[in-house]
Amino acid sequence: MPLSLHPDLGSQLINLCSMLLLLTTFAIVAQRRLSACVDLFALQSLFLAVTAAVVAWFTDSPHIYIAALLTIAIKTVTIPMILKKVIERVNVKREIEFVINIPPSLLICGALVILAFSVTEPIAKLGFLLTRDSLAIALAIVLIGFFMMIARKKAVTQIVGFLMMENGLFLGATASAYGMPLIVELGVFFDVLVAALIIGVYTHRLQDTFDSVDTTKLTGLKE
């Protein structure tokens, strides 16, 4: 350990960061404006990078710093920029459309958090790391991202849901295993970036073809 800090401090810092991540997740779910949603996602990614950096500091594993820097470059800067462009291009000034309204959404998300904690409980009991509760929070973020993809109509909000899932996964990897091997992480970053680009292109095509990015209008294919 590079500094003689109390090891509990690391654990607490990481828990704090994870909680901030979860908080931004709830903020995104509760958000009505699309561009604010994207901003909050950028903020969440920033917290994620900070979490990774804290883990890197306390475990003395420099490769996590690379992952943290990449998170900032890709998830807080590049992807939000792409999404903003998409929003501008498809001109969705209107508020986010809901399949499920905000208050029940938040209640469901709360339930998902409880679910995540109960699913990971047998693993947390084995706890060996500084980051015991983070795995549960990571799963919670993944589940909430999943929920958001179901509960929101606009293609852009579905992308945000997908990216939130990715953030949750990244937190899980950092928390439970101090990050994946570097080559795997590079691959995952690459995939996420390409996925965001492709979804952006799709949004354009949806707008051009259906004159809307409301995915509930995609009902041509049925039994």
Binding site: M149, A155, Q158, F162, A195, I198, I199, Y202, R205, L206, T209, T215, L218, T219, G220, L221
Partner: peptide, 9 residues
């Protein structure tokens, strides 16, 4: 377009 989107997501 719908099929591709569904598949991707």
């Amino acid at each position: 377009l719908e099929a591709g989107w569904k598949y991707l997501i």
